[in-house]
Design a protein around this nucleic acid. Structure first.
Lengths: 224, 224
DNA sequence: TTAATTATTTAGATTAGTCTAAAAATTTGT
DNA sequence: ACAAATTTTTAGACTAATCTAAATAATTAA
């Protein structure tokens, strides 16, 4: 069964919302907000997706992806992240420039293409923002990382990902000279506002607000 | 002004039809046949394109692209051909496998992307089928090639392009071990059916029907 | 040159995806 | 527990892209 780009965008949105929630159902308003659509529009589309058995839907309650829906979501995410790797590694885009283009490329329909792209890129496991790339069968590594905002003083971490993909945020990290894989030593944590003083890659000191630290994902060094 | 993928496909079709015709106008039925659409559908769309000043349109007569329309057509063709180079050179697709994927990729919208892709591919001038790639300003090389079917006996030619892009035709050439850039020596031409005996790359002899020879574009050796 | 054929356009309908406004269901706050 | 607020759905409408059938214009052929 074919899925339109529009349907794919809804499926991806539902997947992302499920990921970030404890609850078992995603609401109409959540989806509407994420996709900048009217709730009425979302109701129509979720009826259609339920019809196709890509989600389960209970009126006035919410939706959740079926296995079939999850498979499609992971396939789109796989394509998005592989294209991001291509854009950054091969075409030399900056990590904050690739999102919108990958949003278009992720809907290109050709299994053969994605397979060959994956091989060409040498089967990368992570995209330029540190997000894991699902394999061909939809298997995805769950990385046990934590926000830097709950890190412990005097420990050393590895910068492994971000939980905010906005251009402005990514540019801020670039300006701090902070890149994926860098070590982060937490020198001190301000008790009042949660801000941190850190040392990046054993070389330069920086100051991070709690707001920024909370979007930086790390794992303890020598543990991964 | 934005153009939808659908509009782009019409513009490209009109461009291709203009290219292959002496007449100054392309008819509704031509476009309908090329795009496998109903003439009534085409009439609606050409009204829309005329409204946008991408074509000139005279009722019951036909259409032709404006400068604006031509610019868009050449931009799509540029994108299509650059993606084909990418697919063949980098992803190792065969030359007969890339058309449908490039048809999708050509509608991806990002000037920055195409510029970087062009550079990544080292600014190729021809696609895998020997068609010239328009430059960023829409300038396109017109190559003075002829169909092999009107070639002269005992002369040596270079295989420079095809006028038929069907998978089955391209596979036939592959089976003959004939690739772009190969030399073709015309040994003899059959007077009755126009078939040719040729030697490819000074190494192996092949037989070509007139039908096949007419879709093979060549230029005389040491002239180009 | 006029009747027959062919090509094109118009008219009316359909589907996908979107909207606004109003109705209905659920949740919240006192 | 019930009124108020919020969320969700329904109803009706719009646009883009498509179709079929019918009407009209242009071309061809006798």
């Amino acid at each position: 069964m074919k899925t339109s780009s529009t349907e794919e965008n809804y499926i991806k949105a539902i997947y992302k919302l499920e990921e970030g929630q404890v609850k078992n159902a995603v609401t109409t308003n959540d989806i509407a907000a994420r996709l900048s659509m009217q709730p009425a529009t979302v109701t129509d589309m979720i009826k259609k997706l339920a019809e196709k058995k890509l989600i389960t839907y209970k009126k006035y309650y919410g939706v959740s992806l079926t296995e079939k829906g999850k498979t499609i979501a992971l396939d789109i995410i796989r394509k998005h992240r592989l294209w991001e790797v291509f854009l950054v590694k091969k075409l030399k885009f900056k990590w904050d420039e690739v999102h919108d283009i990958a949003e278009q490329l992720e809907h290109i329909n050709s299994d053969e293409l994605i397979q060959k792209l994956d091989d060409f890129l040498e089967n990368p496991k992570f995209d330029p923002h540190g997000d894991a790339i699902p394999d061909r069968d939809g298997k995805i590594k769950t990385i046990k990382s934590i926000p830097l905002s709950i890190a412990s003083k005097k420990l050393t971490y590895i910068f492994s990902g971000v939980s905010n993909h906005e251009t402005r945020f990514l540019q801020h990290l670039t300006n701090l000279n902070l890149s994926l894989g860098n070590t982060i030593d937490v020198d001190s944590i301000n008790e009042y506002d949660g801000s941190l003083k850190i040392k990046i890659n054993k070389s330069h000191n920086e100051f991070l607000s709690e707001q920024v630290a909370s979007c930086i994902l790390v794992h303890p060094k020598n543990d991964k």
